[in-house]
Amino acid sequence: MFLTLTGIISGIVSGLGMGGGTILIIILTNFFEFNQHTAQASNILFFIPTSIAAILVHLKAKDLEKKIILKMAPIAVAGGAFGAYMSAKIPSENLRKYFGIFLLLIGMYEIVKLVKNKIQENEKIKKQHKKIFW
């Protein structure tokens, strides 16, 4: 029951495009006491079926940059194999810390980006107001 709820939350966050995978791992490790490797593996199992539908929608709408996929995917797959191989060599407690550092960096980057965009938007609105006023 709670696991399904976790899935729902992660699904919503994915649908919003904010990193559903990270939130799934966060919940599984912090609230269900999963070890880091099992939580990560659960996200992999979660991602494949839930993303196929989204990819098909993009494919149908011809919204995929196929050239970029063809260039990027082979390198990304090689990187993924290397990363997954390394992951298995790292003890779960350490991996949990590294994941924390990764989250910290992502969180800070996204907040800076959000605030920057918000300021730019406000400037634009101000400018438009000025134009109307004059």
């Binding site: 399904t4 729902i8 699904g11 649908g15 199992l45 979660f46």
Partner: peptide
Amino acid sequence: YFDFKIAPYIITGGIIGGIIG
């Protein structure tokens, strides 16, 4: 590392959540 027992629960939730999102 895979835990196939819990996966169906999470995936079902994920599909519902994805649509809502």
